[in-house]
Amino acid sequence: MIAYIIRRLLYAIPILIGVNLITFLLFFVVNSPDDIARMQLGAKRVTPEAIEKWKAERGYDKPLVWNAAAPGVAKATDTILFDKSVRMFALDFGRADDGRDIALEIRSRMGPSLAIAIPTFILGLFVTVSFALLLVFFRNTALDVGGVVLCVAAMSISGLFYIIGGQYLVSKVWNLVPISGYSGGLDAGKFLILPVLISVVGGIGASARWYRTLFLEEINKDYVRTARAKGLSELHVLFRHVLKNAMIPILTGVVVVIPLLFMGSLLLESFFGIPGLGSYTIDAIGSQDFAVVRSMVFIGSVLYIVGLLLTDISYTLVDPRVRLK
């Protein structure tokens, strides 16, 4: 088992290198730093000096991959590729266009993001799994058919409408909670409850339908027939036999996103004015702050890879066939 985890960890290294190469390609090769500088400075202020200054401020004034002018090993190391990659791996993301330190900013914004993401995740999982179990318990009845239609209808509505509609109804018409904003401490509750509820409701359709399919697939297996032949009640069969087996595919989809919860939600945070990483990313996209976007891409991939690792570990918890091999 330890060897298994070590092997998984080793797999992660080439993937991270690959991600780093892709971001490098995207941000430095597709458009040269000169192009970007020209665009960012705006047509009026473009002078060769201004471009050089812009590049120097950001450390973009080196050759891309090969520094023929440098001595020895520095030929390969004194380049944008090497410099930027090494800094990334050391979690040194440099400064944003507004001059603030990106790493610092990320650290301070993680809290609010998690404050929405974690309750959403837990509540959402609980609600969708229960709903799917309900549908499966009443399979082949009108309740099941109605539930599935409801799921399909729910997943046909854009997430934007859930947010806009929820904000409008709850905050504007009923005046129950503030429409947007954020504060630390206990006060945060009144700002968080609406976004959490909205994203749980918005996610029910697709996931409940998916879980229902998984449960139905399990329920047609031979061992379920065995369990019924033992005289167990339908609920017992559902919870002890079906749910436990269906957890394996469910985990694949669920555990991998846990680390990504740190990244927050782009839409919710920007609509509700919550100062998390999601709104940070959106703002960076809006203001074309490439350093921030690049950092977020890198962090996202690291978290995803951590998620893959967690998924593999969680398999060993629920599936004895993996644990004992």
Binding site: T226, R228, A229, K230, G231, N245, I248, D319, R321
Partner: peptide, 20 residues
């Protein structure tokens, strides 16, 4: 079921719950 009458099946490989 299970007390008055019990049943065994053809495929022992799939008829037992793999995770219990």
């Amino acid at each position: 079921r299970g007390s008055d009458m019990a049943m065994i099946f053809q495929e022992p490989a799939t008829s037992l719950n793999p995770v219990l």
